[in-house]
């Protein structure tokens, strides 16, 4: 479904080249849970951006449904992210003036309201649907983000350190919810190996290079 061929991503910092991803080749299959594990600054988030089409590789190719992202116009790439992917980021980004329920529907519209309510209920937020983000705890915000990512039943959910700002217990619950509620593949980046106990595959990355997979 998603495939990279010797994809590299190089940043330039004051004239110095920094290889965030270095010739990475991998494939994400339908419905599998892939963990990407590595220390801070190892390039795991950059790899997630490449896989989701948020960034273009500076060398190599990234395919989605066997067509390179680079060959697709920006609107089509946005449409893929909107319709086929779901995102959970490290920070629970929510729109401050929208309620939890409205935040869940902010990208895909109110036609999914019934499912949005169901998701929030299954994530334990049945009493907090009409609260603003400022009235929610960090864990609750992240659960709202999960509901938003799962609302349209995406083919792939990309989760970038979704537990980083949470305590271990809440983080474990969040991962559990992601795994339980997904309908497609899950690609999760983390530096905490204990969050990947349910992963089908774990890819380790160090200094931009894939080290091993298990």
């Amino acid at each position: 479904m998603i495939r990279t061929e010797t994809a590299s991503l190089t940043y330039w910092d004051h004239g110095r080249a920094i290889k965030a991803c270095d010739q990475i080749s991998l494939a994400i299959r339908k419905d599998e849970f892939v963990g990407i594990l590595g220390p801070s600054g190892s390039g795991k988030s950059s790899l997630l951006y490449l896989l989701s089409g948020l960034k273009d590789p500076t060398a190599g190719v990234v395919f989605y449904d066997e067509q390179p992202y680079a060959q697709r116009p920006p609107d089509e790439r946005a449409a893929i992210r909107l319709n086929a992917f779901g995102f959970v980021f490290q920070q629970p980004f929510l729109i401050g003036f929208l309620t939890a329920l409205e935040n869940v529907m902010c990208a895909n519209g109110s036609r999914h309201e019934h499912r949005a309510r169901k998701l929030l209920e299954s994530l334990g937020l049945q009493d907090k649907m009409n609260r603003l983000p400022s009235d929610l705890s960090g864990g609750e915000k992240q659960r709202v983000c999960i509901a938003r990512a799962l609302l349209h039943e995406p083919k792939v959910v990309f989760a970038d350190e979704p537990t980083a700002s949470l305590d271990h217990e809440t983080g474990t619950q969040v991962v559990e919810m992601l795994v339980r509620n997904r309908n497609g593949a899950l690609v999760m980046v983390t530096h905490d190996e204990s969050m990947l106990t349910q992963a089908d595959r774990v890819l380790r990355i160090h200094e931009g290079r894939l080290q091993e997979s298990s």
Binding site: L54, P74, D75, A78, A79, I80, R81, L82, N83, F85, G86, F87, F89, F93, I95, G96, C106, A107, R148, A149
Partner: peptide
């Protein structure tokens, strides 16, 4: 943040 988030999750720049 709102614009960044929306664009990241798939709302096109044009929209």
């Amino acid at each position: 943040v709102e614009f960044g988030l929306l664009q990241a999750i798939g709302i096109s720049r044009k929209r």
